[in-house]
């Protein structure tokens, strides 16, 4: 394995430092307590510091002798569309009801593929809506209203 400066290593280290650091800052806002009675902040503070330390070590090693991994392309369209679809589902399931939420989520997700044709997407979304209504609401008796309050029904 060839070893040299590695962008993925530095990025991974940075993510660990960032998240660990955020938890450390947050933990300082809670009571730390004593060793006998540790407060709610003590354990996250310890683990957060460990994550920061490990992140620094990974990033540091990545600058000198990192692991050579090809990062590869990022499917920006898929990332954006899938995140949007999932957030949409969470936000509207109570408000629009099961059927419209599922239909829009399914259509959005289908569009994540760069190769899909609109007609195919609509057909797939329709099929998935019917299938999931049958499986989850009819079959598994999920207690989610089919049509929600936003539709005025």
């Amino acid at each position: 394995m060839e070893r040299r400066r590695s962008f993925p290593d530095v990025l991974a280290g940075g993510i660990f430092v960032l998240i660990g650091g955020a938890f450390v800052v947050g933990a300082l806002g809670y009571e730390l307590g004593t060793p006998t009675r540790m407060g709610p902040g003590a354990f996250p503070l310890l683990v957060g510091a460990a994550v920061v330390a490990l992140g620094l070590a990974i990033a540091g090693k990545g600058l000198i002798a990192g692991e050579v991994i090809s990062f590869g392309p990022i499917p920006w369209r898929a990332v954006a569309v899938i995140v949007l679809a999932v957030l949409f589902f969470g936000f509207t399931i109570r408000r629009l009801g099961f059927v419209p939420t599922t239909a829009v989520t399914a259509l959005l997700t289908t569009l994540a593929s760069a190769r899909v044709r609109l007609l195919t997407a609509v057909a797939v979304a329709a099929g998935l809506t019917v299938a999931s209504t049958l499986i989850f609401v009819v079959g598994l008796q999920l207690r989610i209203p089919l049509w929600g309050p936003w539709l005025g029904l």
Binding site: I82, A106, T110, S113, R115, V124, A125, L128
Partner: peptide, 14 residues
């Protein structure tokens, strides 16, 4: 796959 992955995401969310 174009049918498969929307199905996985939708079912996972539900």
């Amino acid at each position: 796959y174009q049918v498969l992955f929307p199905m996985i995401i939708l079912f996972a969310a539900i």
